[in-house]
Write a protein that binds this DNA or RNA. Sequence first.
DNA 1: TATGGAAATGATAATCATTTTCATTTGTGA
DNA 2: TCACAAATGAAAATGATTATCATTTCCATA
Lengths: 121, 121
Amino acid sequence: MNKSDLKLISVLERTGGFASAQELHQILRREGDGIGLTTVYRALQSLVDDKIVDLLRRDDGEAIYRLCGDGHHHHLVCKGCGQTVEIEGGAIENWAKTMAEEFGFREVAHTAEIFGLCSKC
Amino acid sequence: MNKSDLKLISVLERTGGFASAQELHQILRREGDGIGLTTVYRALQSLVDDKIVDLLRRDDGEAIYRLCGDGHHHHLVCKGCGQTVEIEGGAIENWAKTMAEEFGFREVAHTAEIFGLCSKC
DNA sequence: TATGGAAATGATAATCATTTTCATTTGTGA
DNA sequence: TCACAAATGAAAATGATTATCATTTCCATA
Ligand SMILES: [Mn+2]
Ligand SMILES: [Mn+2]
Ligand SMILES: [Zn+2]
Ligand SMILES: [Zn+2]
C-alpha cells in the first residue's frame, strides 16, 4: 500500500462507479497530478490482488475498476450512466455450488452481474 | 449467413468449447483454408449478432466464442481444459429480475458463469 | 450467356489498451 | 551519510481488434 495506491483509492472514492485505467489516469492528470500511466496500471493491479478493488470488463473488453465493499458480492450496473449498486448473490450462491457439484467441478468461482437502465436514465 | 459463416460454424462444432478468433483462424489455416483473419472476425461478429454463437471474455480480456444452444442459458467452464457445460439459470433468473425491480432498473440483462476444474483436470 | 452492380474477401495499415524495459528518483534503515 | 531496495515514469514493444481499400466472387436481369 504505497503512495500511488492511495491516490487511486482516492479517485475511485470520488468517481463512485466503474472507470477504466485510462480514465482514472486522465482524471488524476486533470487534477494536476503528474502520475504516469504505468504507475496507474501497477497500482490498480496491486489493489485488485489485495481485493480492494473489483475488476470487470466493458463490452469491448476494456478493464474497468471500482472500489469495493468487503466480501463476496455482485453488481447491478446502469448501462446509461454507470451507476453501480452492490448486491447480494442470494439464491445464486447455492445455484453455483449445486451446478458445480452436479458436474463434478472443483475449486469453483462464479461471476454474476446485472445490467440495465437506472430510474434516472 | 454466407460461406465464411458456415466455415466458422463448422470449426466451432468440431472444437466444442470456447476458442478465440485467432485460434479459430489458425485451425482453419492448418486445415488448408486460406481464409483471412479479417473475415474470421467479421463472420464471428455476424454470428454473435444473430445469436448463433456466444461471446465471453478470458481473464485477460480476449474475446472467446462458442457455438450455442438455443435460448437463454449459462455456462460451467473448466479453467484447465476449457470444457464447457451449458446449464440452466434456475434461481438466477428470478434473482436478476427481483434485484432490478428493487432498485428501479429497466431493460435488464444479466451474465452468470461458473468457473472451476472439471473431474479430469 | 453477357454484364453491371452488390456483397464478400483479404492484405495491409491503423488503433488502442496493456505490458515490458530500463534508467532515474525516492525512501529507509544502519 | 551510505548503501540498497522500492517506486516511478518515459518510451518502446506487444497483441488483439478494427478500418481501409482494391480485388474477386455472386447474382439478378437483359
Ligand atoms: Mn463491488
Ligand atoms: Mn452457450
Ligand atoms: Zn443510469
Ligand atoms: Zn477440465
